[in-house]
Amino acid sequence: MGKAKLAVWKFASCDGCQLSILDCEDELLAIADAVEIANFTEMTRKVIDGPYDISLVEGSITTADDAQRIVEIRKNSAVIVAIGACATAGGIQALRNYADIDEYVSAVYAHPEYISTLATSRSISDFIKVDLELHGCPVNKEHLIELVAASLAGRKPRIPQYSVCEECKLRGNVCVVVAENMPCLGPVTSAGCGALCPAVKRGCYGCFGPMQKANTTSLAIRLKENGADEDKLHRMFKTFNATKFEKEFSS
């Protein structure tokens, strides 16, 4: 059996999630040895035609062309993994979904007629069947390696399914809500970062998106009782994973 073919694709994004692969300094040459990097524009000029065993997809769908491109990638890929908040939730650019897109275009560009964009920024799974999702803005690079290794081995990846709040306790941080009365989204946010924000004495800002069955309403009530400003709280939910925390600011 030959090496598995890995492809990396970019849609609307900051490049940070695919940079996570190049940031695996200790593992990069071993990864390039273990798999055939068949399409990864940021890293190589070499392009090998599909089909691909695994496609990592970064970024959200924001143009009609990209909506077609992702369908072609699906046809050419055995496994599709959506990586990062843009690919899994539309990213920060999904804030347009709650605004007038024509006004946005004319606010930034002198010639709106040169710009082709959709009115919304949507996750990859809104357009095609996605096999696995890895959350985070950016994703955790160790989890990315684990996920690729697991899907090549045909096993389930070991990615934490609990909340940042649990990671925070495991890390031994002092709770910033209890001790400092800070607004923190740790109880409702997917684990994966290692509770970085509370470790530097700030509240979690939800960049890994909601964990499964998160009770965001209950948390919002508690934070308001603690004196959090309601508008600020709405903005906290309405940032990097707005489409997934929608009910906490649209009501």
Partner: peptide, 13 residues
């Protein structure tokens, strides 16, 4: 694709 940062920054803290 454009992401409109300068547009959605308006109204943020």
């Amino acid at each position: 694709p454009p992401r409109f940062f300068e547009a959605f920054l308006r109204g943020r803290g």
